[in-house]
Amino acid sequence: MKIAFTTSGKDMEATLDPRFGRVAGFIVYDLETLETKLIDNSQNSGAVQGAGINAAETIIRAGANCLVTGNCGPKAFRVLQAAGVKVYSSEAQSLTDALDAFRSGTLVEMNTANVKGHW
């Protein structure tokens, strides 16, 4: 199982960024192998529209089964849902804290977008 975290950092000590579509990048953490993989999302910072859609496509193609972020809008959520990716909202400071919360089962799965588009 692979979890994608939103961040502008390079490792699991980095800060969890609450943005999804226009976040600088993702760290995909593999729960089985404990390996991390950094994925660049900078192409979306200047997207005219649909940044969330493109970001969702990126993490799905990277094999993520779960997304841990701050906020997720309706279009991104629709894509993630279509691919069966579970979305969790977290206010944790670091990716490590967010991962701990995920493992302990305290993160609540979102069943709908928690913000509007362009919030």
Partner: peptide, 18 residues
């Protein structure tokens, strides 16, 4: 360029409004 389609293995999801 407008991210009106998203593809991940199967047929694309389309966002006509974009």
């Amino acid at each position: 360029e407008f991210n009106a389609l998203a593809t991940f293995g199967g047929p694309p999801v389309i966002f006509p409004e974009l």
